[in-house]
Every structure is written in structure tokens, then in C-alpha cells.
């Protein structure tokens, strides 16, 4: 076992991991941060996306040891302390950007990374950025709409579907 330390959502944590422990397993099983979901475990679906040092990564395809010393952000840190949703989360709620919700943590974390890079993306830029995030329920339309709305753009012309 190796001791790793990292900052998760602003809080310093540490734990003992094996070489093969994935960051996703460390977050879910060791830290009990089960908001990060494992959909495929084969790097395809994006349900496990978190930020490591500000960059979106698939936590099922990175070892916990590689995040030693890093700043990690997960879905649990997106809302304010008192539970107030951030702009992206609120827009998903308002615009029906989720159905079962399984893909949503990854969608929100990918969206946050996108809006940091590109604060006013076009609909096609949103779709392109979400290439690695798969949703089995919504048909993506309202996810794209939610992210456009979260970026402060007028989405009234985008029909609900």
C-alpha cells in the first residue's frame, strides 16, 4: 500500500492505496464520494469525469497514485456549502437536462470544464465537447440546452423535446 494525499473539493485528504487503485475507486470507496459514477469502466461513457488540476479526466482511467498532490474536483463540490446549486446544476434542473441522472455528474463536470475554456459555446461546440459523455435517456437535446442556458445564452428559441 502507498499513502496518497490530495485536495478534494478544497479539503485535504489522504489514504492508503494499491498501485492498481483507480482514482474513481479511491473517490467512491475510500472517500465515500459516490457522486462520481462508474458507467462503463472502459473509458467510453464519461460518467466518471472529475477535474484533476483543473482538467476534465475520466477517473476510471487514471490511478489514484497519479493524483497524489493534485487538486481534485468532483460533483460533490459543485453546489455551495448550503446546497445551493451552481449555474450548471440549476440549468440542468430548470431545462430537464436529466432523466435517470446516472450520466449527470459526468455531464456537469464536463460542462464546467467546457465553460471555463469557452464561456459562450455554440450548440455544436457543446455537442463536440460532450463526445465522451454518453447518456442513455435524454437524447442529449436538453443537456445541450441546459449548458447553453448555464452559459447565460438565451435558449428560448431552442424547442423543448
Amino acid at each position: 500500500m502507498t499513502k496518497v494525499s490530495m485536495t478534494i473539493n478544497g479539503k485535504q485528504v489522504s489514504g492508503d492505496v494499491e498501485g492498481r487503485t483507480l482514482l474513481a475507486s479511491f473517490l467512491r470507496e475510500d472517500q465515500r464520494l459516490t457522486g462520481t459514477h462508474i458507467g462503463c469502466d472502459t473509458s467510453q461513457c464519461g460518467a466518471c469525469v472529475v477535474h484533476v488540476d483543473g482538467k476534465a479526466v475520466k477517473s476510471c482511467t487514471m490511478f489514484a497514485i497519479e493524483a497524489d498532490g493534485a487538486q481534485v474536483a468532483t460533483i460533490e463540490g459543485q453546489a455551495a456549502e448550503d446546497g445551493t446549486l451552481n449555474a450548471i446544476q440549476a440549468a440542468f434542473q430548470e431545462h430537464h437536462g436529466l432523466q435517470c441522472g446516472f450520466c449527470t455528474p459526468g455531464m456537469v463536470m464536463s460542462a464546467a470544464a467546457l465553460l471555463k475554456e469557452n464561456p459562450k459555446p455554440s450548440a455544436s461546440e457543446v455537442r463536440e465537447y460532450l463526445e465522451g459523455n454518453i447518456c442513455r435517456c435524454t437524447g442529449y437535446h436538453n443537456i445541450v440546452k441546459s449548458i447553453m442556458a448555464a452559459s447565460g445564452q438565451d435558449v428560448s428559441a431552442i424547442a423543448a423535446e
Partner: peptide, 9 residues
């Protein structure tokens, strides 16, 4: 290549 998360690693 792939998607943004793949490109970041």
C-alpha cells in the same frame, strides 16, 4: 483524438 478527457491524459 477521442474526446476532451482522453486528450487531457
Amino acid at each position: 483524438i477521442g474526446d476532451p478527457a482522453v486528450r487531457n491524459r
